[in-house]
C-alpha cells in the first residue's frame, strides 16, 4: 500500500519531478485514509444492521430483512453525517473560544 516509502528519488530529480512525487505521496495518503474511513463505516453499519434486522437467521435473507437492512444502512449513513456535523461544529466553536 505504501509504495511511496519504497520509491526513492534518483539523483537526477528535477524540481518538477519532486512536485509530482510530492503530489503522489499526498494523494496516496488521502486515498488510504478515505479507504479506512469507508471500511470502518461498512463494518460498523453491517454490525448494527445485522443485529437490528436479522433477529432470527433463517435459511436465507427474507424480503423484509432485506428491506430492513437497506433502510438501516441509509439511516446509519445519515446518522454518521449528523454526528459528524454536530461534532465538527462543536470542535470549531471550542477552537474559536480558545483563541
Amino acid at each position: 500500500m505504501s509504495d511511496f516509502l519504497k520509491g526513492s528519488l534518483s539523483s537526477s530529480t528535477s524540481p518538477a519531478d519532486m512536485a509530482v512525487k510530492k503530489e503522489q505521496i499526498m494523494n496516496s495518503v488521502r486515498q488510504e485514509i478515505a479507504l479506512i474511513n469507508a471500511q470502518e463505516l461498512m463494518n460498523k453499519s453491517t454490525d448494527r444492521c445485522f443485529s437490528k434486522c436479522v433477529t432470527k437467521p433463517g435459511s436465507s435473507l427474507s424480503n423484509s430483512e432485506q428491506t430492513c437492512i437497506g433502510n438501516c444502512m441509509d439511516r446509519y449513513f445519515e446518522a454518521f453525517n449528523i454526528v459528524s456535523r454536530t461534532y465538527t461544529s462543536r470542535a470549531r466553536t471550542a477552537r474559536l473560544e480558545a483563541q
Binding site: 479506512i36 460498523k44 437490528k52 446518522a79 454518521f80 461534532y87
Partner: peptide
Amino acid sequence: AKAHSTIHTLTTMCWDKCITGTP
C-alpha cells in the same frame, strides 16, 4: 483521521442510544 475515528465511535454509541425501533 483521529477526528474521524472519534466520529465513528460516537455514531455507534449514539445509534445504540437513539435508534430503538426498526429502521
